[in-house]
Amino acid sequence: MTGRAVSAAVLLVIGAGLATLAVLVHYEFMRIYGDITGTAFEGLTWGLTAGPSGLALGLVAVVVMIGFMVSTRRWMRLTAAAIPVLMLIGMFAVTPSALGQRLEAQFGSTPQCVTEGTDEPMATADRESQQAFDSISHIGHFSGGGMSGVGGCTRWFKLSGDVDVLQHYRAALPAAGWEVVEDDGRHLRAHLNGRAFDVMPCPGGGVIWAGSDDDPSYGQGRPELAGTAICPHDL
């Protein structure tokens, strides 16, 4: 092999190694920060634009482009052109698995209010809210984010796909014995044995609340929650 051919081969090996490393980095990035509500294509696009995947693609492209220009053989040029394409295919292929890992590790299918070590009277309020949540069939993925206290328990959830949140609970609440007392198309409130439940759709998901039927939903009106958004910008 000539000196140019050897240089091209070395660059292609380096490019292939960097591409493999980039796929692994993309997987870890999506596993930690990926949006579980998005598709594999949306995850890949987001990783390329907002994560390290785009920088990795640029680095690999530069290396293989140099290898392409100095190569003297057709198979080397074809290999140089194929490496970035295979890298993108690899990133696309691992994205669903990475998002599935994040969903399994960081989200649950049911809301959780009870926390070890909580003092009274908050501990009792949390247990009562948890009992209310446990009596209802839920949708979405709960990360544990929310607010708890004597004014009730609020939990946010994400949704995969286009789901009518209120329609689900319009059916689930009566099936669990709850009586719907408010339904204005923006939120839904139901009562059962002195307890109250409320649900409101949010962009990308929704928010649920459980507390006493004497309390306002989501603790609205309580001084300590003044200015708190019911639907946060990032669920």
Rank of each mutant, 00 (worst) to 15 (best):
M87D: 04
R73E: 00
C113P: 07
R155Q: 12
S109T: 07
G67D: 07
P111T: 08
Q101S: 14
G100M: 01
A80Q: 04
G58D: 03
G100Q: 01
V150I: 15
I136R: 10
G117N: 05
R102C: 05
A82H: 13
P96H: 05
A105Y: 06
G108E: 12
V60P: 11
I66M: 11
R102A: 02
E42S: 11
E104T: 13
V165T: 15
S97N: 12
E42D: 13
M122C: 03
L57K: 04
G149Y: 05
M91V: 05
G47H: 03
G67T: 04
E116V: 10
K158W: 01
G100A: 02
S129C: 13
V114S: 08
A132H: 09
D119M: 14
F133P: 02
A132F: 09
L88H: 05
T79Q: 00
V60I: 12
I139R: 02
L159T: 05
F92Q: 14
F133N: 01
R77Y: 07
L88T: 13
T115I: 15
G43M: 06
G149I: 00
R127P: 00
L59Q: 02
G108Q: 14
Q101E: 13
M69P: 00
T79E: 00
V165N: 01
D164P: 02
F107R: 00
T118W: 09
V163F: 02
R73A: 01
I83P: 08
W156V: 06
A80M: 03
W156Q: 03
D162W: 08
T154E: 14
V165I: 14
M76S: 13
S160P: 01
G67L: 08
L48D: 01
T37Y: 06
K158E: 15
A125W: 06
L48Y: 05
M87K: 08
G51V: 11
T124P: 00
T110A: 04
G146M: 09
G151L: 14
S160N: 09
R155A: 04
M147K: 12
H138G: 04
I139P: 05
L57H: 06
H141C: 02
G140N: 09
V62T: 00
P96R: 10
